[in-house]
Amino acid sequence: MLINAVVNGKKVSWEVAKDEMLADTLRNHGLLSVRTGCDTGNCGICTVWVEGKPVLSCSTLSFRVDGKSVTTLEGVSKEAAKFAEILTAEGAEQCGFCSPGLIMNVLALARELKTCGDEEINHYLAGNLCRCTGYMGQLRAVKKYLGVDGR
């Protein structure tokens, strides 16, 4: 079936299968920052925005974004680079496989959260697993990015 959506600010008309998930559709269209890390909705690596809200693209049926806006890391590359600069300066990215999903959720957090203590940050990002870093460096980077000292 054909869907019309605005992906990273551009209007697209894409042919998708009825049971296709958004993660596959986006990857098939060359948006390679979109990756998956599990089959159960637990890891958050596949996080993208639909209508500005972070969702799991692995669990979102593609037809459901018909008429909606979709944003991947490629669509917020400037802001992403700003955070990534801080993250890398902190040495807090390791294998990097979890980074795109993390960044999409960090940017959503920056927009949505009103109080940004350590607990609030960690809770908002709880759905983003990372096996390499142990999370502490990511927390330091998020706090620097938000300009808060956490507590």
Partner: peptide, 17 residues
């Protein structure tokens, strides 16, 4: 504390894997 040489590419989701 040099940044990783591939850090930015990895952190910003560039095709690398």
């Amino acid at each position: 504390a040099a940044k990783k040489i591939d850090g930015m590419a990895l952190a910003t989701g560039k095709p690398s894997y």
